[in-house]
Design a protein around this nucleic acid. Structure first.
Lengths: 333, 333
DNA sequence: ATGAAAGCGCTAACAA
DNA sequence: TTGTTAGCGCTTTCAT
């Protein structure tokens, strides 16, 4: 009777074969209403026999739920995001949700496109990672009542939950660690001064040193390996020779290491180096990089959990979850 | 009149407001039947006014198409897959498809679950990457008529297209390059002999040397950094001292580099080292690793394209696409 | 060139 | 505990 793609059984087939109504079958599946043990068994038998699987499209049409969430990232190729994605996938899938990934290349136009998709497809919730820009893109989600979380922004704003890591604390700890291991002439290779995101790292670093009554030298450079090299060169060229350098991220730290190697310095003997992120390569380079780890996987898990809660009816005020960063001691400091 | 989630307009609203029938609106959207210029304009106006977006679930119910493909990978955290994913995402999205990513952790149970999902959700096509195991998991897809492509398997088999890279050629080129740059005592640190996948690299390596009348030493070790170290140690311990080592992948090559550094060898002076994959870190270590690049992004793009073709009605015999590998010359050889 | 009407496969009042 | 019935928002014959 049901036609679906030949071979695919429909709820109608099940009902017929089991000698019950559509409704009953629907209810043994959803459990939203009591069904006698005998009937349930019979139906379940038939379901197995026919290898019946409900059609999600039809379900969604009625329930307005797709059991799908979207993860929007600027660059899936940046190792931070796969780690985050894995965390999100694991908890989402465990809850029966599928995850749709969108790669925007940081392009605002594609970000908006992603939002359109979410709306059209009836995606139930969205996790958004941009490059530190504002949350305006999420406006349509809020309007449509689609639960949303954003990564990396410190403040939970109107309608969106926020997941981030404690950059300030990480910078603070890095400085503290260095000072406690005897360093006194610390410097920080930061990103361009305009870069709004991740300045917490620098601020935390400065905060500790201020408290310790030690000077904090800072050089702004590009957030690249070359930037790290150049920044270090600048630091060594002008003023006091540093005995420890904290880099804004691991890639930059690699540039610092390059400089040290090129100039025959011993790391960590002559110069201690600390990075941020704990990217995969951090423990593969030589000397292995001491770094402040940002919990990517955990953020992904948290995002999925928050979203799941919201879908479960949690309507409390938007929440901000901040993950502590952890100093990973390796060889470079 | 239409109720949807308050604020969301339905096709009915558009029809009413434009003073035409549902049918007409549907057709200006799909273009599947001529509509007078005047009507089309009016309808499009209203669509814009109401910010109308068709409901995909309803569409799918009729058309049996979700404009969604699934990408199933064993470990999204392995840098190869994000690159592949990005390629796939870019071409899929350009064609109006969304991509659902599944991370199986290489677990057969989760692989099967992914297949179930694909079936239930009516995903239109699937790209599958396993850990070199058989394609039996894809059986349900073939049965259901869902276009499927598999990565890394050389032979296109019943019902599934295949995308892979030319491991044999890569191994061959690595050996050739080394010999042409004057090396004569080449060795290969391979994975466990049981490992079916990626032996092409070794075979290609051996093939060239055989042709060149040169001996090919091989040591099997774990496919880890430590494995690379141990394999190298073994090679140096027994028999002729090699002047060039090709490692089964970059991580293993890192282990080789470790050994060289530890024993005060100059790379590439005393020992040339070549890896496989060109993972991100390859050009970040010191010395920067010469490696044979496997085209991850390209494979993802190709997969999406093949799938799109199949969905377009291409019913030719399953095809196998093999991408050439490219030797990336850096400092280690 | 346009409309009316019949579903797609399912859920959810409302009855019994 | 179970069944009847009316849609969900859209596409698609079949008429006009």
């Amino acid at each position: 009777m049901a036609k679906q793609r030949p071979g695919r059984a429909g709820i109608k087939d099940v009902a017929e074969r089991a000698g019950v109504s559509l409704t009953t079958v629907s209810h043994v599946l959803s459990g939203r209403r009591p069904v006698s043990e005998a009937t349930r068994e019979r139906v379940e038998e038939v379901i197995a026999e026919l290898n019946y699987r409900p059609n999600r499209a039809a379900q969604s049409l009625m329930t307005r739920r797709t059991h799908t969430m979207a993860l929007v990232v600027p660059d899936i190729t940046n190792p931070f995001y796969p780690a985050l994605a894995m965390g999100m996938l694991d908890v989402a899938e465990a809850a029966g949700f599928a995850v749709l990934i969108d790669n925007t290349h940081g392009d605002p136009a594609r970000e908006e496109l992603a939002m359109q998709q979410v709306l059209e497809r009836g995606v139930d919730a969205i996790a958004f990672a941009g490059y530190g820009r504002s949350l305006d893109v999420l406006e349509p989600m809020i309007e449509a009542g689609v639960p949303a979380v954003a990564f990396g922004i410190a403040e939970a704003s109107a309608g969106v939950d926020v997941i981030s890591s404690d950059d300030h604390g990480g910078g603070y700890e890095a400085a503290r660690f260095l000072v406690e291991s005897g360093r006194r002439r610390l410097a920080f290779v930061a990103g361009p001064p305009t870069e709004g995101l991740r300045v917490g790292r620098l601020h935390g670093f400065e905060a500790f040193l201020r408290g310790a009554g030690l000077p904090a030298r800072v050089h702004h450079a590009a957030l690249t390996r070359d930037g790290g090299y150049a920044g270090t060169a600048a630091l060594f060229a002008e003023g006091v020779i540093p005995d420890a350098i904290v880099a804004n991220n691991d890639i930059v730290a690699l540039g610092v290491l390059d400089y040290a190697r090129r100039h025959g310095m011993d790391v960590p003997g002559d110069l201690a180096v600390v990075g941020f992120d704990d990217i995969d390569i951090a423990d593969l380079v030589h000397p292995a990089l001491t770094t402040v780890r940002v919990p990517a996987r955990e953020q992904g898990e948290a995002a999925a959990r928050v979203l799941l809660h919201r879908l479960d009816g949690d309507v409390s005020a938007p929440h901000s979850t901040v993950f502590p960063m952890a100093l990973i001691r390796r060889e470079s400091a």
